[in-house]
Structure formats: C-alpha cells, structure tokens
C-alpha cells in the first residue's frame, strides 16, 4: 500500500510538469497582454512596465522563473488587483466554496433518495418520470437554465434576487447579512444542483439495482427482516460505499468555482474573477488559478483510487 502511494505520487510529478508547461505556453500564445490592453499608456511607460512585469524576456526564461516561484508557493502577482495571486484566490475562493458546498450536499441528498426509490420501484411510473427528469437536467445548457430561472423566478415573480451576493447598497451585519447572502445563494445553488443531479441519480439507481440482486439481500429478506431495514440498512450501505470515490472527484469542483453560473448570477466567486481576469489578460492570476485546479484534480484522482481500495478491499492496489 505504501509503495503504491509512493509510486502514484512519483507519477504525479511528470503529469504536473507537463500540465504546467501546457498552461504556461498556451497562455503565452494568447494574443494581447495586460499592458497593451490600456490604450492610455505612452511608449516609454509601456517599455517600463514590460521590463517590470518581465514581458521583455523570452518565454522559456519566464517559464523557469514562474515554475521556480511556484515551487516556493508563490503564484506571482496579479496585475489587475495589484496583489499576490494567492491572496486574490484566498479572497474569492470562499464565496465559490459555499455555493459549491451547499449544492454538493443538496445534490447528494436528493440523488441518494431518488436513486434508491427509483431502484426499488424499477419501471414504475415514478421511475420513468425520474428518468425523464434526469435526462432533461443533463440536456440543459447551464447558462440557459440560469437565465430562465432569473427571468421567471427573479424578474417576473420577484421571489429571489436576480444576482450578486448582497443587496446593493445594503449595510447589513450579523444575522441579517447571513440571511441576505443566503437569499442570493438560492438560485445559483439551484442551478448547480439541477445540473449535477442527473448523473449521480443514475449512478445510485444502477448501483442499487446491482446490490439488490445480491445474495446477502436475499438472505436478509429470508430472515424476515422488514423491507425498510433490508433496503436502507443492508442494500443502501453497500450501494453507497463505492460512491465515496465519486466524492473525491468532486473535490476540485468545490474550489474551482462555477465559471458559467457565477457569471450569469454575477456571483463574486473565483469563476467570475477568472472570466474578468481573462478579459484583461491578467496572466499570473489565470495561470495560478489553472495550475491550482490541475493540482487539485490530480490529488483528487489519487484520493479516489485510494478510497476505492478502502471501500472495496477486494480491489488490490499495485
């Protein structure tokens, strides 16, 4: 087991180096830079800024400077915010995190319940109905879903605020502030939940259907246990276990922000900041963020594989 983990960790190194190279050189191919996007600068000032930000050096050298700083935990300096990238990420990541966390909890709760009911009543009306809903959720573009919800629930009916994180101009503190933010969170969380629920519900349904056919479930029934105990205590537990690997895959999504949803709802999270940084070509921020997500992705993949072995000891990790 320890050897396996070590081997996998070693494998991560070339992947991360490759990812960092791809990230750096792709961004360096992108036309335009932060200095050029300001038309008010004189030629001399531009040259000064070029030298200051290191734009005048060849790409290869800049890559090694960037990666050297990266290894020391320094993601560089955001041109747009004039602050270290780590600080900018730290400031905005939490508002994304809370939305993602809320929708993650909701998605899993609903998906488990629907999946189980759907599986125990396979081919019933409820099951077919849910199947259709699940397909519908998977076929809707996220931005369109967001727009529709804003149009009908926020603008026409006025039930929810249309965007932002707090009511503009409000100076709320304490509980009122929390309540205000929570109200603004409802629609983004709803969109993310509806988008995520499809695949997970299908997953739980298939898992449950597989488990229900197993011998130990028949044994439990044969012992005369109540159907509820059989389903929830014997079958569900075993259907849930493999899902912990899926949980690990969700890890990057918790921190990466939902670019589209945050953009639509004007939510000041890391996804919206990414889009903003992309428009003004704030490369240190863009590269730092992309690298951060890449790192999270490889770690969560590794975690998923390890958890798989924990959940199912029959799987031998070599």
């Amino acid at each position: 087991m320890r050897n396996y983990v070590l081997k996998r960790l070693l494998y991560l190194i070339p992947t991360l180096i490759g990812a960092s190279m791809l990230i750096f050189f792709l961004y360096s191919l992108v036309p335009g830079n932060f200095v050029d996007s300001d038309p008010n600068l004189t030629t001399e000032r531009k040259a000064e800024l070029y030298a200051l930000y290191g734009f005048d050096q060849p790409d290869i050298e800049r890559y090694f400077i960037w990666i050297g700083n990266l290894l020391q935990g320094d993601l560089g300096y955001s041109l747009q915010f004039q602050r270290p990238v780590t600080e900018v990420l730290g400031n905005y990541i939490w508002s994304s995190f809370f939305v993602a966390l809320a929708s993650l909890i909701l998605t899993w709760l609903i998906a488990v319940i629907i999946g189980v009911v759907s599986a125990t009543k396979q081919y019933s009306f409820f099951d077919s109905f849910i199947t259709i809903i699940v397909f519908a959720a998977m076929a809707t573009p996220s931005f369109f879903l967001g727009l529709i919800l804003i149009k009908f629930l926020a603008v026409d009916l006025g039930w929810f605020p249309a965007g932002g994180m707090i009511t503009t101009g409000s100076n709320l503190t304490g509980w009122d502030y929390v309540k205000d933010v929570a109200e603004h969170m409802i629609l983004p969380v709803l969109v993310l939940t509806m988008l995520g629920i499809g695949g997970l519900t299908r997953y739980f349904r298939t898992n449950m259907l597989e488990v229900i056919k197993q011998d130990f479930v028949r044994t439990a029934r044969a012992k005369g246990l109540k159907e509820r105990v059989v389903i929830y205590k014997h079958a569900l537990r075993n259907a849930l276990l493999p899902a912990i690997t899926l949980f690990a895959f969700e890890l990057p999504a918790l921190f990466s922000g939902a670019i589209i949803t945050e953009q639509i709802f004007n939510w000041p999270g890391i996804g919206a900041i990414y889009m903003q940084a992309f428009t003004v070509r704030d490369y240190p921020l863009l590269m730092g963020f992309t690298m951060f997500i890449a790192l999270l992705t490889v770690i969560s993949n590794l975690l998923a594989d390890l958890l798989y072995g924990v959940a199912d000891p029959r799987v031998r990790l070599k």
């Binding site: 490759g18 990812a19 792709l26």
Partner: peptide, 25 residues
C-alpha cells in the same frame, strides 16, 4: 496516455477559452 492525462488534468472550460483566444488570432 501521458498527453491524455495532462489534458484531462486541466479544467476544460478555461482550456477552451484559451484555445478560442489563440485561434481568434
């Protein structure tokens, strides 16, 4: 497979945005 791994490590939406910007050129 290493190239595939690396591509799958990167978040797809930012990757698409970068490519779109590059190819607009």
């Amino acid at each position: 497979m290493r190239i595939a791994d690396i591509l799958m490590t990167l978040p797809s939406l930012p990757l698409l945005f970068i490519m779109a910007a590059v190819m607009s050129e």
